[in-house]
Amino acid sequence: MGKTVPCSVCGATATVHLTQIVQGQITKVHLCEGCAEKGGAGDPAVFQLAGVLSQTDIPPTLACSACGMNDADFRKKGRLGCPACWTALLPALEPLLGKIQCGVHHLGRSPSGVTYSPEQAKMRLEAARREMDEAVQSEDYESAARLRDLIRNLEGQIA
């Protein structure tokens, strides 16, 4: 018998071993049956995440006081415990976000009633200007008009 490898997502014994290329890098992913099925039938991002989380032997150094989850728990489960974990475990999450996301700053909408901080508004404004240029170039005038309104609104928030 060969030695068993833990599932990169949940830590159970892995039975599915995948090699895939994520953003030009070869990644090995080990999955248990449950997580493999989920990756196929459910969220495709599971595979990508599993590849990044695959070192699970590191002892915890951070913990969330609101829900008790620590960074080792997170590496094992691949899911956070509560919204406050995003603050408490952020140092462990930032490198991960760099690999699986398009940056570490939110550029999308906010809950109604929450206005942007000046810093956030500035970043959104830059992005919106870029998007408007793209929209005009691709002759998507509907988007361009919407973006123009957004830009005015953001300029108002910064001033």
Partner: peptide, 10 residues
């Protein structure tokens, strides 16, 4: 696949 660092529009 990505949800952060991009606006909904993008």
């Amino acid at each position: 696949q990505q949800t952060l660092g991009l606006s909904e529009d993008t």
